[in-house]
Amino acid sequence: MLEARLEQASILKKVVDAIKDLVQDCNFDCNDSGIALQAMDNSHVALVSMMLKSDTFSPFRCDRNIALGINLNSFQKVLRCAQNEDILTLKADDSPDVVSLVFESSEQDRISEYDIKLMDIDQEHLGIPDTEYAATITMPSGEFQRICRDLSALSESVAIEAEKNAVKFVCNGDIGNGAISLRNHSSVEKPEQNVNIELSEPVALTFSLKYLVNFCKASGLSGSVKLCLSNEVPLLVEYELASNSYLRFYLAPKIGD
C-alpha cells in the first residue's frame, strides 16, 4: 500500500496547477523511491516529467509499484479543498480503485478526507537519454516567466541564443521585434537574482512561446529555473524542488521551413 505524507499541501497543489493545462489524464507511478509522472501533451510537442522523491514525504511508505491513473482536473478540484499549509496524506491500496487524500490543518483541529476515483490509463512512455547539454542557463524563475509573457505578446515563437556569458531571447512578430539579453550575474546580497550561463558551444534554437508560457506556471515552485539546450534536441526546463525532487518540461524545437 501507499502512504505518503507531505508537510505542506501547497507543493502538490502547485505541481498539479502547473501541469494540468498541458496534460489531462496521467499515471502517478509510485514505488519505494517516490512518486513519478511522465506525460506528453496531445500534440507530442511537450513532455512533463515529475519526480517527488520519497524524502519529500515524511513518512513515505510504498511496498509495491502502484500506478495511480488520475484525471488532473479532478485532482485539482480536490486539492483546492486543501489549505496551502495543510498536512496532506495520500493513501492507496495495492490494487486501488481510488486514491484517498487527507488534509489536516496545522493546528490539528480539522481533518478533511477525500477520495478520487482512479482511471486505467494506457500511457506512452518515452525513454529520455542522459544528455550533456551545450548550454545550461540558471536564472530567476520569475524573470523567465516575464520574458516569455512579454515576448508572447509579440510573437508565437522565440529564439533562444546562448553564447559566451550571455543568453538572448529574440522574437520577430507582425507588429515588431523584441530581444532580451541576460548576462552572467552573481550577487552575494541577492543570490535569488543570479544568472549563470554555462556553455560548451554556442546554441540557437526556436521554441513555441505558448508552451513556454505554460511551463512558467511552475514558477511558484522554485525561485530559479534551469534551461538546458543543445542544438537540434528538445529544450529542458527544470524546476528543482527540495530533496532532489523536480518538475521538468521538455519542448521540441521548431525547425526552419
Partner: peptide, 14 residues
C-alpha cells in the same frame, strides 16, 4: 513560419 517538431522524433518509446 518554423514547423514544430514532434518529441517522439528525439525520444524513443519505451
Amino acid at each position: 513560419t518554423p514547423i514544430q517538431n514532434d518529441l517522439s522524433e528525439f525520444f524513443s518509446m519505451v
